[in-house]
Simulated assay, not measured.
Amino acid sequence: MLQNRLGKLAATALAGSMLMGAAACGGSDDSATTASPGAGTGSAAPAATGPKVGLAYDIGGRGDQSFNDAAAAGLDKAKAELGLADTKELEAGNGETEAAKEERLRLLAQGGFNPIIAVGFAYSGPVKKVATEFPDVKFAIVDDEAAQGPNISNLVFAEHEGSFLVGAAAALKSEKNHVAFVGGVRTPLIDKFQAGFTAGAKAVKPDIKVDADYLSEPPDFSGFNDPAKGKTMAEGMLDGGADVIYHAAGGSGGGVFEAVKAANAKAIGVDSDQAKTAAPELQSVIMTSMIKKVDVAVFEFLKAAAAGSAKAGPTVYDLKAGGVDYSTTGGQVDDIKAKLDEYKQKISAGEITVPAKTS
């Protein structure tokens, strides 16, 4: 079902010549103009006097139970609290070109959406190009600092710091002294997750074995939306002796969880608290998640944009600022929480410097 939605939405975004028809279309897939949470239950949303907001998802889109869903949560909160006049959500497809991403952003800008949020570093070039074409439109991009401009806000995170904490958790919980990392696509951003995870595990047990591999290599970004491949890779790691696996692979993480459940091992989620967002039958295998508060960043940008105070350039959401963290849902890390919080305090205080690169 997700793949069908992706295909349909990618086709919509590419149809630049059908701008007005696309901008006016309804439905839950590529247009979000529904009532705010709580409608019909006694609570009322603010009057729709705010801006028209466009949001362009990365591969996987709303429903990936991870990165994109965190961005969607920020948008949903803005709908409920800021009285947005209208919203439109468009999704990316596997294997699409930068030109397709540019056209998606251009579609939103030409349709009067302002501000526009691009979710994911893959939009770096397209955001920089389209933002120069529409200097009066405010753009934000999540996970990228390279796209700079007077109307571009960069929402970036210290993923390595949050990953250190779950790496420490993995080492503390591993019974085989062997853990693993599954990355979606081998990029500098995902390398940050691996670097932090490895550093955290080795801070606890210097001799621990840490396996790491990636599902695809650029320009192939399908590794963020290939659960079958995620499952196969995780099965290989489990067969090789790992008993805790951390993924930073977007929608492919569901396959990792399936493999972990079958092996009666432990998994670590990413971006969202996946013990809440993953498929119900898989939630129990997720002992913790590295929470990356994309929802907070998206909401804060939209709030600032609505007030006319959105600033250009990077805003960094690190551990000290509460931008990353680890989850405790399910109680599986309650027995090691004091140790994890000790690491958390030391990183925030600058006593521990977490590497942002594996080499």
Rank of each mutant, 00 (worst) to 15 (best):
R5C: 02
E342S: 15
P227Q: 09
D144A: 15
G63L: 04
E103S: 15
A80S: 15
L189M: 13
V298Q: 07
S163A: 15
A228N: 02
T288Y: 05
A310D: 05
A32L: 13
G196V: 01
E103M: 12
E300F: 02
A56F: 07
I59Q: 05
V260W: 07
C25R: 14
V142Q: 09
A171M: 03
V296W: 05
A72S: 13
D29A: 11
D58L: 06
G27C: 08
F224L: 11
L238D: 08
D334L: 10
L105D: 11
L155P: 09
G40I: 01
A297G: 04
I245K: 03
A212K: 03
T12G: 08
V179I: 14
D318C: 12
L9D: 09
K320A: 15
N225W: 00
K88Y: 05
A262Q: 12
A234E: 04
F164A: 12
A15L: 06
G26W: 11
A85S: 15
P51G: 13
T198P: 07
Y326E: 02
F224S: 10
P280H: 06
A32C: 13
E217G: 04
A100L: 02
I286L: 05
G230M: 08
N94Q: 12
K339C: 06
G125L: 08
G111Q: 12
H160W: 15
A338T: 14
T329H: 04
L302D: 10
E175A: 13
M20W: 11
A146K: 09
Q283W: 03
A312V: 00
G330W: 01
V285K: 01
S252P: 02
L82Q: 04
K52V: 05
D295A: 14
S309K: 09
G240H: 10
E300H: 07
A35M: 03
T328W: 02
T328Q: 08
I268V: 08
K339Y: 05
A180V: 03
L107R: 12
A122N: 14
D226V: 00
V260Q: 07
H178C: 13
F139H: 07
A118M: 03
S163G: 12
K138G: 12
M290P: 01
A279D: 13
G7A: 14
N151M: 03
S153H: 13
S163I: 03
A168N: 10
S17L: 01
